[in-house]
């Protein structure tokens, strides 16, 4: 693509970015509004954050969400990485196309379908709904995202490193742990962070699979939002935006610097 921006390009880039960020900026600014009326500016204040800290139910939900996200992202990272290794290194095994298809389906599947299907599964096998059913549901959905991130990393790195390790007599497990894992860990970490944020954000799947005593933050926010705009909701949304932004930036930084990893890889093979 030819480089250099025409004025038309500049205008469309500026408008696009304004469209993406203005609504979020307004939400964040109004979370610091002193006035109770969401639309009248009454000066800067941290009142709604203080109110938030005093809201036990909201904090309880936030804690449930964080625990669900931590456990499900950890499980999804392990399972997703294994699936990615099978796809990238398994060669042309039977049912490979079906396996790839099954892995990609949840990426575009409408959430209402996934949520209802998972719930019916839990009911059929007689699991009590609550913390663990949400966690299992989130694991099953987010592991696809992890697998996609890890698989594309596995397909781009130099395979001869792994072959060298095998030639030097490292058994498969050892070459996986000492050569492949250190090479793909940025993708694994990025996958974990993405799984974590997806779980933290999910409303629909959590609503279907939740049970008594396991109200996640999005479910709580949704029930408040239906009643109208409240400055306190602006405050909790702002905190979630900051958390997600930090996670995404960390993931991007981790997934960078492939060139310097090459030297590191040569180093690692020497250790075997």
């Amino acid at each position: 693509m030819r480089k250099g921006l025409s004025s038309f390009n500049l205008v469309s880039a500026a408008l696009g970015l304004a469209f993406l960020y203005l609504p979020i900026a307004i939400l964040v600014i109004y979370s610091f509004n002193a006035s109770r009326l969401v639309t009248v500016w009454g000066g800067w204040s941290l009142a709604w954050y203080r109110e938030l800290l005093a809201d036990g139910a909201m904090l309880e939900s936030a804690w449930v969400s964080v625990r669900v996200a931590l456990v499900s992202a950890t499980a999804a990272t392990i399972l997703g990485t294994l699936a990615a290794v099978a796809l990238a290194r398994g060669g042309r095994f039977r049912g490979r196309l079906l396996f790839t298809g099954l892995l990609y389906a949840p990426l575009v599947m409408p959430e209402v379908i996934t949520g209802l299907a998972l719930l019916l599964l839990f009911v059929a096998i007689g699991l009590d709904r609550g913390f663990w059913t949400i966690t299992i549901a989130h694991t099953s959905v987010t592991l696809c995202f992890v697998a996609v991130v890890v698989e594309s990393r596995l397909l781009t790195f130099d395979r001869s490193l792994e072959e060298a390790a095998m030639d030097l007599g490292a058994p498969p497990l050892r070459s996986f742990l000492l050569v492949i894992l250190p090479l793909i860990w940025p993708a694994i970490a990025a996958g974990f962070l993405l799984a974590f944020t997806l779980s933290l954000d999910d409303l629909v799947i959590a609503s279907f699979t939740t049970g008594p005593g396991a109200t996640t933050l999005p479910i709580r926010i949704y029930s408040e939002v239906r009643l109208g705009v409240k400055p306190e909701i602006n405050a909790i949304c702002t905190l979630m935006i900051v958390l997600v932004a930090l996670g995404v930036i960390a993931a991007a930084v981790l997934n960078r610097g492939r060139a310097s990893r090459r030297a590191e890889a040569v180093d690692l093979t020497a250790k075997l």
Binding site: I24, P218, V225, V244
Partner: peptide
């Protein structure tokens, strides 16, 4: 990518505002 990972719920709520 940043708004891509921000909750749908939050982005819709921003528009209610």
């Amino acid at each position: 990518v940043l708004p891509f990972w921000t909750s749908f719920l939050i982005r819709v709520y921003a528009w209610i505002n």
